[in-house]
Amino acid sequence: MKVAITSKGVTLDSEVDPRFGRAPYIVVVDTETLEFEAVDNSSNVNAFKGAGIQAATTVCEKGAEVLMTGYCGPKAFATLEAGGVKVVDDVTGTIREAAELMKSGKVTYSTAANKEAHW
């Protein structure tokens, strides 16, 4: 299964970035093979507003089934939902640990955004 994880770096040992819209990278990992692709999310880091929406469309385009991150705002959540992507938040550790957690199935999908909209 393909899972997108917000990341501070470009390797499996990089740390999970708790921010979604403003994380520098989104690493898309295949939980079976651990093959991965690091997607540059930095054009979003400086977005004035709606960074999460952009990041969400990127995740949808990459064909990920699940997004793992720290916090996800309501607009990003709505976008992911429309794209059929499930969300796991409050994720910490490395990308590898997150991918393994996903594989083990011991995750709780969120049913709503866990972060307020900000203006």
Partner: peptide, 18 residues
């Protein structure tokens, strides 16, 4: 420029407040 539109799958989301 304001990320007010998101095309995902067969939907176009409009975030009119943006």
């Amino acid at each position: 420029r304001f990320n007010a539109l998101a095309v995902v799958g067969k939907q176009v989301l409009v975030f009119s407040e943006l």
